Simulated assay, not measured.
Amino acid sequence: MSAQSHLGVSEELKLLFGISFGAADLDAPANRLRMGRTPLERSVVVHDTTGVLDAR
């Protein structure tokens, strides 16, 4: 079963998933660590939209 049919979302729409876990406590030692990010081209697959990541 697709995510769209499971959630009752029309197949003509595209789904984008995002997760947020709240605001960072900037005074907490754990939040002083900075990590690099993987480029979108390596972590995102965009179907049927040729060149969409080229505009970056």
Score class of each variant (00 low, 15 high):
S2T: 14
Q4E: 15
Q4G: 06
Q4S: 08
H6D: 05
H6M: 10
L7Y: 14
G8T: 04
V9W: 05
E11G: 04
E12S: 13
E12T: 15
L13K: 11
L13C: 09
L13I: 01
L13Q: 12
L15E: 06
L15D: 00
L16Q: 09
F17Q: 13
G18A: 10
G18L: 12
S20A: 12
G22T: 02
A23D: 06
A24S: 01
A24I: 07
D25T: 08
D25R: 02
L26M: 06
A28K: 03
P29M: 04
N31C: 01
R34Y: 02
M35N: 04
R37A: 09
R37K: 11
P39G: 01
E41D: 07
E41C: 04
R42N: 11
R42T: 07
R42Q: 14
V44I: 09
V44N: 03
V45A: 07
V46E: 00
H47L: 08
H47S: 11
D48E: 13
T50S: 12
T50F: 05
T50N: 08
T50C: 00
G51Q: 06
G51Y: 02
G51S: 00
G51A: 00
V52F: 15
V52Y: 08
L53F: 03
L53N: 01
A55Y: 11
A55V: 14
A55N: 12
R56L: 09
